[in-house]
């Protein structure tokens, strides 16, 4: 298997959400290529020592989000029409990271203006060509 997933069952984040996030990230980064086969539910459950229904739930949500597709009897695959969906997957992962960063900044007592300033300076740093 090219992508090795890991989960932290002791985390307060539900395991199925951890799995969804990792598959989306792998698809967004091209670590999982379009058409590539994912491990079966049973295989992944045993590999990670987590409940099979939990893995199945993650796969169902990934199908719903058009990231993967399941062919009965053959297995689950990364969808080939991935470009748009991959972009969507990437946006999802990024949105979560931004939300987390803003929440943390706020919990440290920063004002929204201060957060915006930080955000602008990060944009300037990582998109210098747009200046």
């Amino acid at each position: 298997m090219p992508a090795v997933f890991t989960v932290d069952p002791r985390s307060g984040v539900p395991i199925y959400l951890q799995l969804i996030e990792q598959v989306k990230r792998s698809v967004a980064l091209g670590v999982l290529a379009p058409g590539e086969q994912l491990p079966t539910v049973k295989q992944l459950a045993v590999d990670l020592t987590v409940n099979p229904n939990t893995v199945a739930r993650a796969y169902r949500d990934l199908e719903r989000d058009a990231v993967i597709e399941t062919a009965p009897g053959r297995g689950s695959f990364v969808r080939a029409d991935g470009v748009a969906n991959q972009a969507g997957a990437a946006a999802d992962v990024a949105a979560e990271a931004v939300t987390r960063a803003v929440r943390e900044a706020k919990s440290l007592g920063l004002s929204s203006a201060a957060v915006r300033k930080l955000f602008d300076s990060a944009l300037t740093r990582w998109f210098p060509e747009e200046k």
Partner: peptide, 10 residues
């Protein structure tokens, strides 16, 4: 745990 998980998967 893995025996339990395999049984559940079946």
């Amino acid at each position: 745990l893995n025996l339990i998980i395999e049984a559940a998967a079946q």
